[in-house]
């Protein structure tokens, strides 16, 4: 009798415990690259030992499509490290709930939503990957700017992402248009188009193509170049001197979350000092003060202070202009 009673109690306790564990389980959707997400998650687990984080990682486009398809019954509590130009899509934005996490004032105002629905702690920036072997073999000079790529010697040697299928592609042309003004900007893109061999339908593939020696210059983003240099590919990372286009990766609370306390604690964590430290290890752009840029970034060619080379993008305009610019781009350049 005694024994059964005790085991019944134990079973009850187990149920209760698993009940509490369930209450502290959150599902987080992220578009951070898999290795980044794994490193961040490990740090989060150390700081939040009682929260069980189920992490689903998909690329920005796949994730956006999934969130929109799941809109009727969202499966996630937190959206983490997700491109702002996709976040502001009305079909995604309407599913978010305003939240002021602890420490939000560290984030400069231009990196957060006026309505408080999202805030960006990290971001990525455009960069060129230049294949050294191919550059030498063809006797070309190392480009330092977008303007250099319009030189006739680069004809057929430049690959760029297609902005209709790649967010990276969009921030590249959008930053040029914002920088030069639309009229001059399109004129410049006309000239650049003369030298572009392909508009590849992905943001990282142009750098991979340059790394593999398929083309000399691949317009991509900085971290792809850093990682490919670490793999050993003979490429140089070039931050275009006009200023690098960039995109924010924002965090947000999902309105339909059934576990908002844990979700909010997770979001608070994304602004903590522990989080900032690990962000600095992996990201070129971190909007909060904290650690410093690791050596592997600077040795790959990134400046110590990236804020000096970033173009100050108007993110709201970038999002608002998106379909108009892509449509015009397709009319002009899609072959």
């Amino acid at each position: 009798m005694h024994l059964t009673k005790r085991s019944a109690l134990a079973a009850l306790a187990a149920v209760m415990l698993s009940g509490t564990a369930m209450a502290n389980t959150i599902t987080v959707y992220t578009a951070y690259e898999e290795d980044e997400a794994a490193a961040f998650l490990e740090a989060a687990k150390t700081s939040l030992p009682d929260i069980n984080v189920n992490l689903l990682r998909l690329s920005t486009g796949d994730l956006a499509a999934r969130i929109i398809a799941e809109k009727a019954n969202p499966q996630h509590d937190v959206l983490w490290g997700f491109a702002v130009t996709s976040m502001v899509n009305p079909e995604i934005l309407e599913g978010l709930e305003a939240y002021q996490p602890v420490g939000l004032d560290q984030v400069p105002e231009r990196f957060r939503d006026a309505d408080g629905k999202w805030f960006a702690v990290t971001g990525y920036m455009a960069a060129l990957c230049v294949n050294n072997e191919r550059l030498q073999a063809r006797g070309m000079t190392m480009p330092t700017s977008w303007a250099d790529l319009t030189d006739p010697s680069f004809k057929g040697e430049v690959v760029m992402p297609n902005p209709a299928s790649s967010g990276t592609g969009y921030i590249q042309i959008n930053s040029l248009l914002q920088m030069m003004g639309e009229e001059k900007g399109w004129e410049f893109l006309d000239k650049l188009d003369q030298n572009v061999a392909q508009y590849i339908k992905s943001g990282s593939r142009p750098c991979n193509a340059a790394s593999a020696g398929e083309y000399t210059v691949g317009a991509s983003f900085a971290l792809r170049a850093v990682k490919n240099i670490e793999e050993g590919y003979p490429i140089t990372l070039v931050v275009p001197s006009e200023g690098a286009g960039n995109e924010l990766e924002a965090n947000a609370l999902v309105a339909a979350s059934k576990n908002k306390d844990a979700a909010k604690r997770f979001l608070d964590w994304t602004l903590s000092a522990e989080a900032a430290n690990v962000y600095y290890d992996w990201k070129a752009i971190v909007t909060v003060p904290g650690g410093k840029m690791p050596e592997r970034f600077t040795s790959a060619g990134l400046p110590d202070d990236v804020s000096q080379v970033l173009f100050p993008v108007d993110f709201k305009a970038a999002a608002d202009d998106r379909s108009r610019i892509i449509q015009k781009w397709q009319e002009k350049y899609e072959r």
Binding site: G61, A65, I68, I92, S165, K201
Partner: peptide, 19 residues
């Protein structure tokens, strides 16, 4: 495909590229 686009890549552009 390089610059060669087809209907299937257009579905991708619309759904994944631009939601």
């Amino acid at each position: 495909g390089g610059d060669f686009s087809v209907l299937a890549t257009e579905v991708y552009n619309q759904v994944i590229g631009q939601a």
